[in-house]
């Protein structure tokens, strides 16, 4: 199996590291500058969520291919407390940390597909794909 590029999120600086790697991968795949910014921003939001709420986790990237369409998949995994109410976190303006509350719904808007799996007490896995236009 192909090794996936992966960034462990342990400290704040890893957020920058993750989005820089993500941007690099997006560039390699042929995304335009606007999509690169979208992807990097989405990664930043996901990585920050891990840092803020779970403390430790990782973000990895995967090149995906669907019916000849190429895309970049971002997966953010942590074993933190999980999310109690999924519909609540997907609301604009909802935040428990004093942020803008734009994180997860924002990521959903920036990417083409968005999937979230979370079990209260078991951790969270979020994956999102952006297709090359």
């Amino acid at each position: 199996m192909e090794l996936k590029p992966c960034v462990n999120i342990r400290q704040e600086w890893d957020i920058v590291g993750a989005r820089q790697l993500g941007r690099e991968k997006a560039k390699e795949l042929g995304f335009g500058t606007v999509d690169q910014a979208r992807i990097a921003t989405a990664i930043s939001e996901l990585a920050r969520n891990i840092y803020l709420y779970a403390g430790i986790g990782k973000v990895y990237f995967e090149m995906v291919d669907h019916l000849g369409k190429k895309g970049l998949k971002i997966v953010a995994v942590d074993e933190g407390p999980g999310i109690r109410d999924l519909s609540q976190v997907m609301q604009d303006g909802y935040s428990t940390s004093g942020g803008l509350g734009a994180g997860l719904p924002g990521v959903k808007r920036l990417m083409d597909t968005f999937e979230i799996n979370s079990e209260w007490g078991e951790g969270t896995e979020i994956s999102a794909v952006k297709w090359v236009r």
């Binding site: 500058t33 606007v34 690169q36 910014a37 979208r38 921003t41 939001e45 604009d92 803008l100 734009a102 719904p105 924002g106 808007r109 920036l110």
Partner: peptide
């Protein structure tokens, strides 16, 4: 503010 950044911010809802 760069166009790409502006678009991303708007899509984020900021």
């Amino acid at each position: 503010i760069q166009p790409a950044v502006a678009m991303t911010l708007i899509e984020l809802g900021i």
